[in-house]
């Protein structure tokens, strides 16, 4: 995977969600996901199922109210796809790596705990980045400093500066990928230039 300086993605659907929405619009993605979950679990897509699904979704979001997730209002399906493909590749590569470490008898695996400062201040992007790094084998989120946008990760087998720097860049790269898909423009520009700086340094 090259980390060349890619062009800025085109901006699709940059509607400011919060301005004309209120809670309903903000919760719309959550409702859609809940209705889909309902339909998938029943395994059928009849109109009745959809109506009941919507009712159940409304009920669930009322009964178990959560603080609304603040989305940036930007969504780019192409970069989401790029992110998912890259993520799948990392999961496969990481799985093989961790598995091979497990089978390397006679050696004791060493690790590092690293600190990675993210660019974003959005809870949503930070959470997605943390989840991504958690799911990619070889890294584990130990601690999150929300106010400072900092993640602390346990990286299996990172025993020298090279490996540590590589792991750090992987996190920043994941953040940029996520920002490209759903993040705000300003943060994306900032994160990209930071990543480039890190790469060239």
């Amino acid at each position: 995977m090259t980390e060349s300086a890619q062009d800025l993605p085109p901006v699709h659907g940059s509607t400011p969600v919060r301005k004309w929405g209120g809670q309903m619009i903000q919760q719309a993605p959550l409702l859609v996901v809940l209705v889909l979950l309902w339909l998938f679990l029943w395994g059928s897509f009849s109109p009745l199922d959809i109506v009941v699904g919507i009712l159940v979704a409304l009920l669930v979001t009322r009964v178990f109210e959560l603080p609304p997730v603040q989305l940036s209002g930007r969504f780019n399906p192409w970069w989401l796809l790029v992110f998912l493909v890259r993520f799948a590749g990392q999961v496969v590569a990481g799985s093989v790596e961790v598995a091979s470490k497990a089978f390397r008898f006679g050696t004791v695996v060493r690790s590092s705990v690293i600190e990675v400062g993210l660019t974003t201040t959005s809870d949503f992007v930070m959470t997605l980045t943390a989840i991504t790094m958690s799911l990619v084998p070889g890294s584990l989120i130990l601690e999150v400093d929300r106010s400072g946008s900092t993640l602390f990760l346990h990286v299996l087998g990172a025993v020298d500066d090279d490996a540590i720097e590589k792991a750090r860049r992987k996190v920043l790269h994941a953040e940029v990928d996520i920002l490209r898909a759903v993040g705000s423009r300003d943060e994306l520009v900032e994160a990209e230039s930071r990543l480039r700086g890190k790469v060239s340094a």
């Binding site: 961790v98 598995a99 958690s134 584990l140 130990l142």
Partner: peptide
């Protein structure tokens, strides 16, 4: 901590 990697990751 290392075991967490084994327990959660190849599993996915």
């Amino acid at each position: 901590l290392s075991r967490m990697h084994a327990a959660t990751k190849p599993q996915i």
